[in-house]
Structure formats: structure tokens, C-alpha cells
Design a protein around this nucleic acid. Structure first.
Length: 207
DNA sequence: CCAGTGATACGCT
DNA sequence: GCGTATCACTGGC
């Protein structure tokens, strides 16, 4: 079924499986000035306490408490002094797994997204990066902990057209020095909204 | 290419 | 309690 809310048990899975599930799905954020929806095309899996790159690696803190809660909630964090990034919380068995939303194609509310993302020169750039995506959708700190599966929620996660595994590419996560041996970044091969791969300020095309 | 921006968390007193 | 390195980044050069 397409365009329905996910069920919580569907999301309470290993973060890598959740990453595949989220590609092609739709996130919808309603606010006072309108609604923006985006089709997710790039994500990264974070595996909780066993993963040195995960915010939950060092245990529960005030910032990361949402990651220990039930699946299907949104973990929003502030980074680099000016940006917000959003994760979908996965497993609820105490492993604090989550999937970072790295990029999406804005599929409705394009005008509102453009107004929020003045620097974007093409529509492909509206959600082309984790903080660009939250800006385009209007996600902020007030959405930390929001339930994506509540029909009454202003931010919700819906099923989309399934992306075949053959159309999914994977590689090392962006900006993560630790655990480079795990290809836990996943993206839709033919999407123009997939972010450029950067590491240490250097661009690494093709990887 | 690289400056901006500020919360976070760790290692020391 | 305090100093400070480190960011799951972006936009303007």
C-alpha cells in the first residue's frame, strides 16, 4: 500500500534495514505557512552503542534521549552552530539505532521550500543535504521527539513507491572518520537530489 | 577553498 | 567547574 502511515513495528528494525525502508518514502511537514513533502533519496544508518559514529555511542544524554525511545519518532539535533539534522528512530530494544535523513526531493510545497532555501538555484538543491532538507521541510528543534506515525502530528512519515534494491547504491558515511569500513550510507542511484560527497572539506566524486 | 557558528562532551583541575 | 577540540554542514569566495 502506498501513501499510508508506517506502522511502528515496521520501523522497529535494524538501522540498515530501516535505511532501505526509508528510501523512496515520503516525509510531510505541515506548519503555519503551509505543507512541504519530500521523497527521501539518501540516508545513513547509525547503529547505537556499537557504532562509534553514533550520537548514542557513549550512552544516554540529554541531547540523545529520543534515540532510546520508541521507533517512529524524530530525533533532531543542532550542529555546526547553525544547522539542524533529522533522524528517524528505529529499534526500541535499547540499542538506540537511528537513520539520518541526508537528502530528499521536494514533491509538494515547492514554493514554500524555495522561500526557505533562498540559496538553492535549482529545485534539485532544495533538499540536497541533511540540513538543507530540514530547512526545506521546516523541521526545527520543536520537532525533536515528534511522533511520525501519529495521524494528527504535523510531521509524518508515509510509504512511497518502493525503490528496488538494484537502484540503491551504498558507500561510507559522510564526514564520519570512525567506522569507515561499514558502507552505511544509502542513496537512490538516479536521483539528482543526492548530496555531494564531502569529507574534511574535500569533495570526493564517485565515492 | 574555508569561515562561520555554538552546543556538546570529555579531560583536567 | 572550566577550557577546548570536535563536529552526522552550508554558502559564498
Amino acid at each position: 500500500m502506498n501513501g499510508r502511515l508506517f506502522k511502528r513495528e515496521e520501523l522497529a528494525v535494524d538501522p540498515v534495514d530501516l535505511a532501505y525502508l526509508l528510501l523512496g518514502s515520503v516525509i510531510e511537514c505541515a506548519g503555519p505557512s503551509g505543507t512541504v513533502t519530500a521523497r527521501l533519496v539518501e540516508v545513513e544508518a547509525y547503529r547505537g552503542q556499537e557504532d562509534p559514529a553514533s550520537h548514542s555511542y557513549r550512552g544516554r544524554t540529554a541531547r540523545n534521549q529520543v534515540m532510546w525511545g520508541p521507533a517512529g519518532h524524530l530525533y533532531v539535533y543542532f550542529v555546526y552552530g547553525m544547522h539542524f539534522c533529522a533522524n528517524v528512530v528505529g529499534s526500541e530494544d535499547g540499542t538506540a539505532g537511528a537513520v539520518l535523513l541526508r537528502a530528499g526531493e521536494v514533491t509538494s510545497g515547492v514554493e514554500l521550500a524555495r522561500a526557505r532555501r533562498k540559496a538553492a538555484r535549482r529545485d534539485d538543491e532544495l533538499g540536497q543535504g541533511p540540513a538543507r532538507l530540514t530547512t526545506a521541510l521546516g523541521i526545527g528543534p520543536e520537532h525533536n521527539g515528534a511522533d511520525l506515525l501519529d495521524p494528527a502530528s504535523e510531521i509524518r512519515l508515509l510509504t512511497g513507491d518502493e525503490v528496488p534494491r538494484a537502484a540503491v547504491r551504498s558507500g561510507p558515511r559522510v564526514g564520519v572518520a570512525a567506522a569507515m569500513d561499514h558502507p552505511w550510507r544509502f542513496w537512490v542511484e538516479d536521483s539528482a537530489a543526492v548530496s555531494a560527497y564531502r569529507r574534511g572539506g574535500r569533495s570526493r566524486p564517485g565515492r
